[in-house]
């Protein structure tokens, strides 16, 4: 949203701007100043800047979100191994404390920048911007941002990613999209992780998860996968290849346009 083209005037607030609307004067005689800015405009501005950085270098940025322990780092480890010959990857790791996840990534040969947020429950665009200064984007094809494990707060903060990838692990239960609609609405791709546990945890029905997602008007693809057994990994890797191809096409089109 911006404050120049009028796109911040939504169906919900348009009535305030009509003549005689609440913004024109106040009953108490105080000055009324209409603003209509998003509360997170400063974050969104930095996020747009980050996105521009990624695009200038043809780098695909994916924001991985899930509850803690859904298997984000495990998925990244498997993805780094599978993509080693094709793409150069780096990971920005968000955790409250420790470098554990960054160390796991480094052991697989990829660059990892650890952001420790202290008590903050989410990454924001400014933290990612700082981390980007430690990465040489010219040498990279894909940057994954592994957000703080949390199904609530990270959903509200644009980081400058191209795609949101949300993991829902089988042990968590298939109704998570109904319980956390804000998070799952933002997903461009939903991965039902730890699918190797489906035979044991048979009360998790992938079709229920899909139905709850559809109730959020989400058209995001849903893949079942297990980073442990590699089952379903091809769907995820093919999705990444397609996203890379689409990004390349976008950046080439942008470059071809007269300035």
């Amino acid at each position: 949203m911006c404050d120049t083209c009028g796109c911040n005037v939504t169906h919900g607030n348009a009535h305030l701007l009509k003549p005689g609307g609440r913004l024109s004067k106040t009953a108490s005689g105080h000055e009324a100043v209409s603003v209509l800015h998003g509360l997170l405009d400063a974050n969104d501005h930095t996020a747009a800047h980050n996105r521009q950085h990624f695009e200038q270098h043809g780098v695909l940025a994916g924001n991985l979100m899930s509850s803690p322990g859904a298997g984000k780092t495990r998925l990244l480890e498997a993805s780094i191994d599978a993509l080693r010959d094709k793409y150069s990857l780096a990971v920005i790791e968000g955790d409250l404390e420790t470098e554990n996840d960054a160390n796991r990534i480094r052991e697989h040969g990829a660059t990892a920048i650890q952001i420790t947020t202290g008590s903050a429950c989410h990454l924001d665009a400014h933290m990612v911007h700082d981390a980007l200064h430690q990465l040489d984007l010219r040498e990279l094809d894909i940057v994954f941002i592994e957000n703080v494990g949390n199904l609530v707060c990270p959903a509200s903060f644009d980081l400058g990613q191209h795609r949101n990838i949300t993991l829902l692990s089988v042990p968590e239960g298939d109704d998570k999209p109904a319980k956390y609609p804000v998070m799952f609405r933002t997903a461009d791709l939903v991965l039902l992780s730890k699918s190797d546990l489906l035979p044991v945890l048979d009360d998790f029905k992938p079709e229920n998860a899909r139905r709850h997602l559809q109730a959020l008007a989400s058209s995001a693809p849903v893949f079942e996968l297990s980073a442990k057994t590699a089952a379903g990994m091809d769907d995820w890797l093919n999705w990444l290849h397609a996203e890379m191809a689409a990004l390349q096409q976008r950046t080439e089109t942008l470059a071809a346009e007269p300035a």
């Binding site: 919900g12 607030n13 000055e31 009324a32 603003v35 509200s156």
Partner: peptide, 12 residues
């Protein structure tokens, strides 16, 4: 259409 607003509308 509406429901995801997080907006500072006005100040007095």
């Amino acid at each position: 259409v509406s429901g995801d607003e997080l907006q500072l509308q006005h100040l007095e």
